[in-house]
């Protein structure tokens, strides 16, 4: 079963056509990448998947629901079953880190305070933060920490589907590799399906099962890393060939 299926999606901003007929599908338990040059609409496509951006035409099915024509009730259920990490964390600035992570659990479950606190302490350590950081506010922490805290919040409910927008950008190389290991481990243990936008060639190589390259409004390539040699596109040539020569 496809977790996400994008069919003939067209996106238009004013007069500018961003996507012109995209097709792709994400399978269960897959780590799927959205790649492409800056401004090609990777993040826009991801925003369309999570219902933040309207779709001009075509359809996107997420967990079997067409997000363009979904009832509010079903949409709410869908929102509870995924986690989204934004590029800069998008933490709630009025809440500290612990409250940010606990928020979905407090809102959607009846678990006791103690259990929620345990979960928060666990998730903090899982993403590489210290429990002593729990009471810091987003304005008091660095960009990398914001990202880790954002991931902890996205993982708070152990969602089956995770959207990550440039998860390793702005992280130091050690944290970035730890991050790659973490998502591989989570995928294995929790059966996660992960869709991510990334420019990090190491993370593309190490973690992604398959990816789609969006270039010039179309999907230039969809498949795994091994098959990239046969694909033709300016972006693919410069982005992958140089890496392979090294």
């Amino acid at each position: 079963m496809d977790v996400i299926r994008v069919e003939n999606v067209k996106t238009v901003f004013g007069k500018k056509v961003v996507h012109d007929g995209l097709f792709l599908s994400v399978k269960e338990r897959e780590i799927y990448g959205l790649l492409g040059p800056s401004g090609c609409g990777k993040t826009t496509l991801m925003r369309e998947m999570v219902m933040l951006e309207p779709i001009h035409s075509g359809s996107i099915y997420v967990l079997g629901e067409n997000v363009a024509k979904i009832s509010e009730k079903k949409a709410q259920k869908l929102r509870e079953s995924w986690g989204v990490l934004f590029q800069f964390g998008a933490l709630f600035s009025s809440l500290n880190i612990a409250e940010n992570i606990a928020r979905p659990l407090v809102e959607y479950t009846t678990l006791s305070k103690k259990t929620i606190e345990e979960v928060v302490a666990f998730k903090l350590q899982l993403v590489g933060l210290k429990p002593s950081d729990a009471y810091l506010y987003p304005s008091q922490i660095s960009g990398g920490m914001k990202k880790k805290a954002g991931l902890a919040r996205a993982l708070a409910m152990d969602p089956k589907l995770l959207f990550l927008d440039e998860p390793t950008s702005g992280l130091d190389p050690i944290s970035a590799r730890e991050f790659d290991r973490l998502i591989l481990q989570l995928r294995e243990l929790l059966g996660l399906t992960i869709v991510m936008v990334s420019h990090d060639i190491r993370s593309i190589k190490d973690t992604m099962d398959r990816f789609a390259i969006i270039d010039n409004k179309k999907i230039a390539y969809e498949g795994d890393y091994a098959g990239i040699a046969n694909a033709k596109s300016d972006f693919i040539d410069t982005f992958f060939k140089e890496e392979n020569e090294q």
């Binding site: 928060v120 302490a121 243990l189």
Partner: peptide, 16 residues
């Protein structure tokens, strides 16, 4: 067991 292992991995169980 492997999931439980992950849950056991971190020593600090409570927030300070």
């Amino acid at each position: 067991e492997r999931t439980l292992e992950l849950a056991r991995k971190y020593p600090i169980k409570e927030l300070p």
